[in-house]
Nucleic acid binder design. Sequence first.
DNA 1: CACCTATTTGGCTAATATGCCAAACAGCCA
DNA 2: TGGCTGTTTGGCATATTAGCCAAATAGGTG
Lengths: 110, 110
Amino acid sequence: MDKQRKAHLEARARVLKAMAHPSRLLIIEELEQNERCVCELTEMIGADISTVSKHLSVLRQAGIVEDDKRGNQVYYRLRIPCMLKFFDCVESVLQSQAEARVACLAGGCR
Amino acid sequence: MDKQRKAHLEARARVLKAMAHPSRLLIIEELEQNERCVCELTEMIGADISTVSKHLSVLRQAGIVEDDKRGNQVYYRLRIPCMLKFFDCVESVLQSQAEARVACLAGGCR
DNA sequence: CACCTATTTGGCTAATATGCCAAACAGCCA
DNA sequence: TGGCTGTTTGGCATATTAGCCAAATAGGTG
């Protein structure tokens, strides 16, 4: 495999990996609506604040969110506006899984 | 957080996690072109065939690919046609990272 | 059936991710 | 300055992932 292609695949994988966690997806969904401070996100997620801070750091390092310190609170927002669209495809996969399950129950299982 | 929402986020995360590996992204890109047998994919990836088989199994369990045994070869194809579109957003992130790096070098770093 | 090819599975080790607690830091206010 | 609130960082235990080898399985053919 070509070196450049490999680098590109790795870069893509890093972005996807950063998104591939339920709490981080929740963060992304919330930030689609509005910027939020860490404490708001922590409350929604219901985990330790240090855990949430680390999730945010993963998203920041992946270039997905950016932070903005105001007073002693830190607000996060999406750097990329396309996340919603992005999920259409994930939804297709889930939809298709659901259909497969139905077909399976109906007797089409291998 | 609502139980249903949590389940939904977990389902999405599982799909993203399945995609979040360079070799699996390569597989997805190749299958966008055409179905491929395991041996072809193994050659492209350049890893042990058992490793590739496990990657395929991850993608299959996530509902992203399906397999089709013909003779003693197993062919894989995408179950979902939207993967290319899906990546537009990842590309935006990468693009934006690149721009940030340029701005940084130009002196805009914090 | 014996043998060959293609693929999957089991088992192991090394690397990475997750989540909590405790400690450090930063900004604000008395 | 001292104390308070909000956030990040370090450290650790546990869990998950990745990749290789070896063994098992499945299909095809002599």
